[in-house]
Amino acid sequence: MAERRSHRDLRWWIAGAVVFLATFAGMVLVGGVAPDAATAGLSVAAASLVHLVARLFSVAEALARSEAEAVAMAGTGLARSTYRELLEEKRRVLAAIKELDFDHAMGKLSDADHRSIRARYERRAAEVLRALDEPASLHPWARALAETGRIPGEPEGGTAATEPSTPLRACPSCNGANDADARFCKHCGEKLAT
């Protein structure tokens, strides 16, 4: 849905550009006005007026929505943001560990300090990785979104992403859920038949 919204934003921008060109061309060709800076200025004003109307419409639209709908829209964002934030956190922690090692190699950190700070970051990295690998720790929608690109309850064939959903498979030894193409169980490490 976020994509849909950004597509709509893009449409408004395109509409603005079209209005600008149409006003400019109309005034020059039909109205017989000189194609000078003032005409361009007026066309910009016309385009921004269209943009303004679109924006006011968005406000009205947001208010006209029911609370449940608004929550549903926000929910996708929330789920997605949790997942994204985890990814970002992972990147940050790994980068911090690399930087720490680099500092140590350049002699700016004593061995003891290096060990203790690195241990702290490693713990954090482990937590993040586990959270990322553990679908249960995510909001159900986030899991569905991360795996299928759709949120549950959204009608099929809508304008949203229509990626086919990948079936999950259970691990024979621990019964944990794994991706269809997984070769090892991500919970217990057991080899899975391919």
Partner: peptide
């Protein structure tokens, strides 16, 4: 704690910019 009003606030913020852009375009014109 209403998502609906929060979203409306965000949209109104975007509308503020649109209105300011319109006013500025008029002044430049």
């Amino acid at each position: 704690r209403s998502e609906r009003w929060v979203e409306a606030g965000v949209q109104a913020l975007h509308a503020t910019f649109a209105a300011a852009a319109f006013a500025s375009a008029l002044l430049v014109y």
